[in-house]
Amino acid sequence: MMRSSPVSKSSRRSFLKAGLMGSAALSFGSALSVISGCSSKPVSYPLNASDKAVYRFLNKEDVSMVAALIPVIAGDSFPAAPEQQRSAIDQTLPRIDLFLYRLGDFNRKEIRQLFDLLHMRVARGLTTGVWQDWSEAPAEDIAAFMQSWKHSSLALFNNAHNAFTDIIGFAWYSNPDVSGPLGYSGVTDTLRAALPQFQQT
């Protein structure tokens, strides 16, 4: 089940402080083991002007960050062919956007704060070890910061890790194009024919 709440209230105001303070203790870096296994070449994700209308929560910087995170979360369930990669991300971003949009006012604000923090170069570098733009960050570095957030002694980072894996993992695997090949039945042709809600346009 979902465990996607971001940062809790007690830690909210101290996010920046904790992030900066915690950085010394959290030796991030590319020396950490590569656990994602996907290609280190990031999928660059420029946002077209026409895409913007699609999103109700994600902004341009969010899109580039989330697009960089999707392949890391998906691991080897992420397609290998470049054109399929692009379409996989195209399908997943609006799903994540819808999910975030519907989180309710409080969580939306929390996620906004977390995302905005991660868009600031210095704060991002100190909390994640990723200093370059998201679109240029190697998957290994992203995987490494996820791993250190998971094992951090600060609840703040554990919660942020859980928010990322929950939301992106959920949005990725709940897509019938991803779950169908895993054996998930979903809406079968029989059901599609039998139930009125699938006949409406």
Binding site: I35, S36, I73, K150, T165, S174
Partner: peptide
């Protein structure tokens, strides 16, 4: 269900993908 299973695992990458291949 696949989304819920993925989310509860609090994991990602190949390890999660392996778990998901065992969905059935």
């Amino acid at each position: 269900h696949p989304g819920s299973l993925a989310a509860q695992e609090a994991s990602y990458g190949n390890r999660l993908a392996q778990r998901m291949r065992e969905l059935p």
